Amino acid sequence: MKLNLLTVMLLGSGLFLTACGGSDNKGDNSTTSTNVNADVNNIQNPVVNTPVPYVLEDYDKEYYTVPNAEEGVVMTYKMQGIKGQETQATALVFTPKTEPPAGGWPIVAWAHGSVGVGDDCAPSRNPIVRGGLLPDVHTQKMIDSFVQAGYVVVAPDYEGLGEPSGTEIHPFLHLKSAAYSITDAVVATKSWLGNKASNKWTVVGVSQGGHAALGAAQYAARANMDYKGAVALAPANNLEMIESLSDMA
């Protein structure tokens, strides 16, 4: 792979949450083990219906498109939820314009940072480039660079964020829930794209997503695919300290 995605960057952070958005604060470093025993994903027909185009009527196209992607879609998929039962979740999927190589496009899972806990905060319901005087284009450029290099990018909303029923709660910073949101989204992406996608996958995340990326590394065996590694940027950690500070505040 062109990027050294076997590197795990542990740049610890604390993380505080507001309704839709949050701020990240540095803390102690955290580590995790890899490929512990996990239930293998045996969910039948993991993709629910045909993925729909990622279109936001209230925003100009430049705010939600990825220039080098052939298409961007919102995929509803089945995952094992926090209660140990099958539930539905959503994810963005971006595919390259290039023809798949022999063996298919490798998959990169993008794990987003904190956006909030309400359904309206889900990344699939919002522009990649947030509006304002100084739009943040970093996520868009990163995803664009991946698809330009020939990777499929799947970006899960996480369990309970933007899910179809609108009744489930997002288990914020629950490691196994976040991990399964990622592993099961990767399985669903492979199922949807078939031979166009490779069995090779990796995960990249920041802040809450860095925490989720480490969880996906720990439970990578669940996908039963060719896991290559994780890049965890400023992963949320030292959660006992965060809880204590929250209680004090």
Rank of each mutant, 00 (worst) to 15 (best):
M225L: 14
N4C: 10
V153R: 02
N238R: 11
Q44Y: 11
G194T: 04
N35A: 08
A178L: 14
G14S: 13
S145E: 03
Y180Q: 02
A179D: 01
Y64E: 09
H138W: 02
V66R: 03
N42G: 09
A185I: 00
A91G: 10
M225S: 06
V93W: 03
T7G: 07
K26W: 14
L10R: 14
Y219C: 00
R130C: 01
Y63S: 12
Y151D: 05
D157Q: 10
V187D: 01
K176Q: 12
T202V: 10
L11Q: 06
V203P: 00
L193Y: 06
D58F: 11
V117T: 15
G21K: 12
L15Y: 00
V206P: 10
Y59W: 08
V73S: 15
T65Y: 04
Q148N: 06
K176A: 02
G113Y: 05
S33N: 13
N45W: 03
S13I: 02
D120V: 15
N42R: 15
L92V: 11
P51K: 11
I143D: 00
F172G: 06
Y227G: 04
L214H: 08
E99R: 03
L15G: 05
A155T: 03
G194R: 01
Q80R: 15
L173V: 06
G132D: 00
N25Y: 15
A212D: 06
Y59L: 12
N29C: 13
A197P: 10
V153G: 09
P171H: 04
I107N: 00
A102K: 14
E71M: 05
